[in-house]
Simulated scan of single mutants.
Amino acid sequence: MSVLVIADHDLGVLSPATARVVGAVAELGPIDLLVIGQNTDTVATDAARLAGIRKVLVVKGVSATDSDVSVIQSLATEHQYVVQSAGSVGKDRLPRLAAKLDLMPVTDVVKILGPNRFERPIYAGNALQTVTDDQPRHILTIRASAFRAAATGNNAPIEVIDISVVSAAKLIAAHRTESDTPDLATAQIVVGGGVALGSAENFHLIEALAKRLGAAIGATRAAVDAGYAPNDWQVGQTGKIIAPDLYIAIGISGALQHLAGIQGAKKIVAINTDPEAPLVKLADVALIGDLFEIIPQLMTELDKAGLKR
């Protein structure tokens, strides 16, 4: 059985989520990796280095509109599995592909138990569901944060394929938040802030601490709704699901929606004035006090340790 993994990439850079997806499906069969879009030369070269890749397929000149699904559909007949990370693109793309193929997708997979048995979270992450998929072909979205990345060192061949498609949609504009911080969904360290910070200006404290630690920045939905942080920083059931080695939660009480997004965190440090907050009780380490006093003290200690940036 063969696997078609669709690469996630942006601005000519392969997303770390792709290596994690490749690692997740390594036992399912030979893997072909599909790269769709513009500026894909470096993406394809980096993808070819991932262990387990049989070959890299490159389709140029196709944007992330309805035509990308037509491309994938034309290649899906040669594979038993079509897989992508459960990011914003994968969540949009693979259900449309499944509809075209008259298949049921299995989404947000966090564990692969066998060729047709998969585990996924339900009820806001409070329970795990085992799905047995007896369909002839499997459409999967993988929660990348739940898996380790595939190793590198491979030298898979790169094959450029020519597929003619007619698109009914046109990309008018792309709006993005520029950032030099690690990708939130795959970062090893995440510093998150809540509505207790009080303003967008105070969120600079979170940014300063994250910069010292080389960490990604997260925020609660309440902080995002209040305008303190951009949407792509949101962590939780309706935001990004994270599984860092260390999560530092600052001024976050721990609403169920937010807890659903951080269940994979290995270690949690909570900074809060309320010792009874749900996230404080869940944390491995809790610092009880005013965040506006604790964070500057913490950064001073980090500077002494040589982590000033």
Rank of each mutant, 00 (worst) to 15 (best):
I6W: 02
V13L: 12
G23E: 03
P30C: 08
D32R: 02
G37Q: 04
N39V: 11
T40Y: 05
V43E: 01
A51E: 05
G52S: 08
K55F: 00
S63E: 09
S67L: 05
Q73W: 04
A76R: 03
S85I: 01
G90M: 11
R96N: 12
A99P: 09
A99K: 14
K100E: 07
P105T: 08
T107C: 14
D108A: 05
V109H: 00
V110F: 07
K111G: 08
K111T: 11
L113A: 15
P115T: 08
I122S: 10
G125L: 07
N126P: 14
T130G: 12
V131S: 06
P136R: 08
I142A: 02
A144E: 04
A144H: 00
S145P: 03
A150P: 01
N154K: 00
S167K: 12
S179P: 07
T181E: 13
D183N: 07
L184T: 12
A187D: 09
G194E: 04
G194D: 05
G198R: 05
E201A: 14
A208S: 14
L213Y: 07
A215Y: 06
A222S: 13
G236C: 09
A255H: 12
L256C: 10
G261A: 10
I262M: 09
K266H: 10
T273D: 09
A277S: 10
P278F: 07
I295A: 04
P296I: 06
L298T: 08
L302M: 14
A305K: 15
K308V: 11
